[in-house]
Amino acid sequence: MNVDRRHFLIMLPAAAIAWKYVLAGTPEESPNYKMSDHWWSMLIDIPKCIGCGNCVRACALENDVPEGHFRTWVERYHVTDWDMVNPEVISPDGGKEGFPAAQVDDNGKYFFVPKLCNHCADSPCTQVCPVGATFISPDGVVLIDQTYCLGCAYCVQACPYGCRYIHPEKKVADKCTLCYHRITKGLTTACCEACPTGARQLADLKDPNDPIHAFLRTHNVQVLKPQMATGAKVFYNELDGSVR
């Protein structure tokens, strides 16, 4: 009964067509995607993050991230009330396998901060690339042309957030693409797909119907290191002042 139903459903034209584009992988075959209609960003809801590491693992599987390097990672902050500006931070293996249990601590608070490329609108990394191998796409995603990158690592130095690394085999800069191969086909990013609590939400700032707009209006939302004036587009709900 169930099997029959599945076979029936997979023959449904709509579903079949959707999946065909997903598999085809070429933008020409993503018929309804227009770069100028989008301006991608992400929302991180800190109170929802449980530090399970699902996003880190999903990212590594989806994007073939080399061992010991991270396109996204999760940090656990421990902030004590007597030293607010010097938190104790850990991120064992980028939080890939979760975190050790924390004991109740009357002196401070704990919280998790998922990190990824901020896809800055005024990105310092694309500014310094000597050859134009990294750039902001017309839909607001900071990408790397790995066939053009020299591997000089100037962009790695220029990123204030530590989001870039040199790929140990390809010898070129590498970082989060905001799952560009997915979002251009109507899917969400691998990290958002795998997040069990909805702590990560892909958002399109150019889409007037995106829930991000209502969220930004009604919540206490910040970006990381605002003093860097990078135009960061990863928004954090309830971000603690000690986070950097």
Binding site: Q127, V128, C129, P130, V131, G132, A133, Y148, C149, L150, G151, C152, A153, Y154, I166, K170, K171, V172
Partner: peptide, 28 residues
């Protein structure tokens, strides 16, 4: 030393062909 440090020294002529105006390094 710059060449040997690059991940892809063979691509270094790109600095001459498509120098990025906003990059201090492209001036080199």
């Amino acid at each position: 030393p710059l060449m040997f440090h690059l991940g892809h020294p063979e691509r270094s002529p790109e600095m001459y062909f498509t120098p990025h105006a906003t990059s201090a390094m492209a001036m080199f």
